[in-house]
Amino acid sequence: MTGIGMTAPKWISRWFRGAAIYGLIVLLPQYLLPQPVGAEAVAYGFIGTASAFQLIFWIIGGDPPRYRALMPVCVLEKLVFGVPVAILYAGGRAPAFLLPFGLIDLALGVGFLLAWRATPRS
């Protein structure tokens, strides 16, 4: 059923809000790490853009049916990090410490996909 006044299951709000908190905890301290010479703009641009996306997760968590249309974009946001890390690690081109973060992003992406399917249209 869909319609005005429909609410999403509680886990969806918690999933998006939890992802936002996790993302900020992982991303913001990277501003304090030394960046490779010449790559500072790229690194800080990535950190800033990814951090801003965490705020989108927070907003979606506040009203999942209203922002349901953004959920597939959130899935994509998780895939663009998780998939390359897994592929690069499998090919010996990414360090082992990145793999858990890539797998967490893939798990969050699956959760976002499930949330999209479980959220009624507003």
Rank of each mutant, 00 (worst) to 15 (best):
G23H: 12
L103R: 10
G23R: 13
T119Q: 09
P34E: 13
R117H: 06
Q35R: 15
A41M: 06
Y44I: 04
A20G: 12
S51M: 01
A52M: 13
G102Y: 02
G61K: 11
G61C: 05
A20N: 10
M1D: 06
L113N: 03
W116K: 06
A41V: 08
A69S: 08
L108F: 15
A90P: 05
G23A: 02
R117K: 10
F97C: 00
G23I: 06
L32F: 15
L106P: 01
W11E: 07
A69R: 14
F46P: 00
L98E: 12
G91Y: 10
P34V: 04
S51Y: 02
L113T: 06
A94T: 07
A8R: 03
L28A: 04
G109E: 03
F97A: 00
M71A: 09
V110M: 08
V110Q: 11
A52K: 08
L55K: 09
L70S: 07
T49K: 11
R17F: 10
C74Q: 12
M1R: 10
P95L: 03
P84H: 05
V75D: 10
A90S: 12
I87Y: 10
A90C: 02
A43N: 13
P120N: 05
M6H: 12
A39M: 14
V110F: 14
I104S: 01
G102D: 05
V26A: 13
W116P: 00
Y44P: 01
L32I: 08
A86K: 04
T2V: 00
I25L: 15
Y67E: 06
V80K: 14
L24Y: 13
A90W: 13
L114G: 00
E40D: 12
I87D: 09
Y22S: 06
V42G: 08
Y22K: 00
L99S: 05
L106V: 03
P72W: 15
L79D: 12
I21E: 06
G82K: 09
L113E: 09
L99Y: 04
K78Q: 10
I60N: 06
W116A: 01
V75N: 09
Q54G: 01
V80S: 08
F101M: 14
I60K: 01
F57S: 06
C74E: 10
D63A: 14
G111H: 08
L114K: 14
A86Q: 07
G45D: 03
G5Q: 02
G111Q: 10
A90R: 14
G23K: 13
G82M: 05
L98I: 00
Q35I: 01
Y44E: 09
A50K: 11
K10V: 08
S13Q: 12
P72V: 05
R121V: 05
I104R: 07
P72R: 13
V83H: 10
L88R: 07
A50I: 06
A50F: 14
A19C: 11
L103C: 00
P64V: 07
G38M: 03
A8L: 05
L103I: 10
I4S: 01
P36I: 12
A94M: 15
G45L: 00
T119D: 10
M6L: 08
R68T: 08
F81I: 14
P84W: 11
I56E: 02
A86Y: 00
D105E: 12
F46E: 04
R17I: 11
R121I: 05
